[in-house]
Design a protein around this nucleic acid. Sequence first.
DNA 1: CCTCGTTTCGTACGTTGTACGGTAGACGCG
DNA 2: CGCGTCTACCGTACAACGTACGAAACGAGG
Lengths: 248, 248
Amino acid sequence: MPRTARPPRDPLALVGLLWEPSTRVGRSGVTIGSIVTAAIGLTDAEGLSALTMRRVADDVGVPVMTLYGHVPGKAELIELMLDHVAGATYAGHDVPGEVGDWRAGLEHIAQRVFEHGCAHAWALEVPPARPVLGPGVCRTYELELAPLDGIGLELLEMDETLTAVRSLATSAARWQVTLDAARRDSQLTDLEWWELVGPRIAQAMRDEHLPISSKVGQAVASAGDPQRTLSAGLTLMLDGLEGRLQAR
Amino acid sequence: MPRTARPPRDPLALVGLLWEPSTRVGRSGVTIGSIVTAAIGLTDAEGLSALTMRRVADDVGVPVMTLYGHVPGKAELIELMLDHVAGATYAGHDVPGEVGDWRAGLEHIAQRVFEHGCAHAWALEVPPARPVLGPGVCRTYELELAPLDGIGLELLEMDETLTAVRSLATSAARWQVTLDAARRDSQLTDLEWWELVGPRIAQAMRDEHLPISSKVGQAVASAGDPQRTLSAGLTLMLDGLEGRLQAR
DNA sequence: CCTCGTTTCGTACGTTGTACGGTAGACGCG
DNA sequence: CGCGTCTACCGTACAACGTACGAAACGAGG
């Protein structure tokens, strides 16, 4: 980092920024919206490490420092970006409350969160700094609570369940993104990679005496994949919830 | 980033680095171990943003560029750090295979992963780049598979279950870390924070018509917390697994 | 003592986020 | 139309970063 390390100084100002778009158009023609849009496009295409104030400014068509008239700093810009993509989770897709019963709804949520996470991989890389509570996040939260409303859960249980589902899905997406990145920049197929690294790992496994992982690892390396793992974990969880609902 | 953006160039070299500590002691007295230890200490104490090659070098007591004689670059150093902390998940604690039945084992895993994640918060911030497969990760994986061995699961199911449990726990830890950080650098108690921000959010909720989140959000704000959410999600999952095991 | 390979590390570069303060445009008023 | 004032713009400058480069210092073998 340069002279930075400037965490969002004023939380209140950030809330204002999130909830009141301030469509002000200055002499330069820039708006918060155009900045955020450009930044998201850039980052979707080239990853978080390409997100640079200079690059954003270039894409918007203004000198760097002009951005600072509309956005307090990079941290706040990222926060705006996060809220924006969070709000678009179900854009162009069915909404969780209208795909069937609660089970179908939760499965739909998991699937969307997974795919949306993969599509905006950078959002998973952002270091967790402060809870973002913008309109996008809130709207999506509302949509996702819908399938859980009125099926016999306490309020807290509704949130806990949704959080658990989202946890599984985002972890799976993170894992998927990791795999894709590794594949991309190593120029190797999974097979080639394992042929290179496998022997060394295998030897280490013998030396260290790791019997269970050695057999499990083999199965996973050949048939494991994040999406499958997600649906397995999800099934477990939904079965548990179903049992509880029936017992009431 | 400076002229960097240098993802670990040679995966094979990294594997070698991970599995063969190379306890070489040069003229400067530095070893890989001393570098990694210093780096972890520094980062535990001051966060990932304080992890600087210059700071590490200072703490070790050598000029910066000396580090590069032992470690290829910052990315690889981080990978070494990650594997090291992963290997210490159960240091000084019971091992998952010896705390009772499979259910107790998985609950223990979740608790340890959660606490360990909070203790090394920076490890959760590291952008997911490439799967780390060092000795620490492998040893811990072995320990965590133990409670699942021989209870009637397929090999793939064992991995899927463990992954699901870990997903819940790391997400909870991430959330906890976020909360702690927000509390720390805003100098406000939760109550003060809500008194400042609450009204604005509440108004937005009315304007945007978000009935469910508004009641759920209230319950969560007053009684929600990551650890509780974790144990709720975990209970759901373990209930599901229990049902499946009984049905076989 | 000299030679040669290895390890150390001083210097320098390009890139980053953004503080600072001069400047130019818009606008109300005469 | 002229002029002061206020605001938005943005050129310049800086500190901090990761690390390439190559000279210097070292240990060992002749």
